[in-house]
Simulated assay, not measured.
Amino acid sequence: MNLLDQFLWVIFPYLSVVVFVVGHIFRYRYDQFNWTAKSSEFIEKKRLMIGSLLFHIGIIPVIFGHVGGLLIPKSWTEAFGISNHMYHTVALYIGGIFGVITFAGMLILTARRFTMSTIRKLSSASDLIVNALLLFIIFMGMYSTLVTNHVQPEFDYRESISIWFRDLFVFSPDASLMAAVPVSFKIHMISGFLIFALWPFTRLVHVWSVPLNYARRSYILYRKNRGQSVHH
């Protein structure tokens, strides 16, 4: 394997994870005031609602599909009587349906951000990059599933990508496993790790901002005192 393959399939994944973790720690410690997403709902609601709804409906099954496909060994599904043909048929149709829903939602959200001048002015450069990159990642995933798998039906990512990915967790990734992987799958994987590296420095950090202490927060009481509004 050449140096480029070693970098892409051995160094780059770990580098992305390190940047992801260290970047979050750094930003949380020194940039908490910007740990949020600028809302554009007051500018336009209809396309935001439709795009966001479609994206979230689709992305959750897609994530679970990726986790199952990458982390569950082929031998395990076969042990439960799931044939290779059955597995790929379900992955193609179910994954394809939710992939299309996710892509449609992301396309609406991206078009909204790029084509509406008021929202584009509100957006930072990182906002635009994230939207475009997420749309590209989803598109490449759809292309790999619906086109590449049709053109190269003999390719089984569970015999190459999945093994390589699981080996990352035990610090022994084999770059040679990715040699025969179709280009569309490679681009999808690389762009996926790239979004992880960019995550801490973009609006994506707001997904971790779950208001867990909201339920036990004290009420804010307002009452009038000598003609002035006072709150406690």
Rank of each mutant, 00 (worst) to 15 (best):
I108S: 04
I119T: 03
T148R: 14
N149C: 05
Q152H: 11
H150K: 02
L135E: 11
T115I: 05
I101M: 11
T115M: 10
F114I: 15
I137P: 10
L122S: 09
G95S: 09
A125T: 01
I97D: 15
I119H: 05
L134E: 02
L133K: 12
F136P: 07
L134C: 04
P153Y: 07
L128M: 13
S126L: 06
L146Y: 09
V130M: 14
V130C: 12
F139V: 03
F136D: 04
M106S: 10
M116W: 08
F136G: 01
S124Q: 06
A91G: 02
F98S: 11
R120G: 02
R112F: 01
G96D: 13
V151R: 00
L92M: 11
V130P: 05
G99E: 05
G141S: 09
F114W: 08
F103D: 14
A125K: 07
L146V: 04
V90W: 14
I137C: 12
T110A: 13
L133R: 12
G105W: 03
I129W: 11
Q152G: 03
G105K: 00
I97A: 14
G141P: 00
M140K: 02
K121E: 13
T118W: 11
A104G: 00
M140I: 03
N131A: 14
A125M: 06
I129K: 06
M116D: 13
L135K: 13
T145G: 14
G99I: 08
L122H: 04
L128D: 11
F103E: 15
V151D: 04
V147C: 10
I108H: 04
S144V: 04
T118D: 15
A111N: 00
I138P: 00
I94A: 10
M116N: 14
G141R: 06
S144T: 04
G99L: 08
Y93S: 06
L128A: 13
T89N: 14
I94S: 06
F136Y: 13
R113V: 01
I138A: 14
R112M: 03
N131C: 13
V100F: 12
A125W: 01
R112T: 15
S144H: 03
H150D: 09
M116V: 09
L134V: 08
V130E: 15
T145Q: 14
F114E: 05
I137G: 10
L128Y: 01
A104D: 09
R113S: 06
I137K: 07
S124W: 02
L146N: 08
K121A: 12
S117F: 08
L122M: 08
F114R: 03
L92A: 11
T102L: 13
V100D: 15
S117H: 02
I94L: 08
R120C: 00
A111I: 01
T110Q: 07
A111T: 02
F114S: 10
G105C: 10
T118K: 02
A132I: 05
R113P: 12
K121P: 00
S144I: 05
Y93G: 03
M106D: 04
T145N: 15
M142N: 13
S123P: 03
G141N: 06
I97F: 15
T102V: 13
N131G: 15
G105R: 00
A132R: 02
E154Y: 10
L122G: 07
I138K: 07
F139L: 11
R112E: 14
T148S: 14
I97Y: 15
L122Q: 06
T102I: 12
G105I: 09
I119E: 07
T118A: 09
G95C: 08
I129Q: 10
T89Q: 12
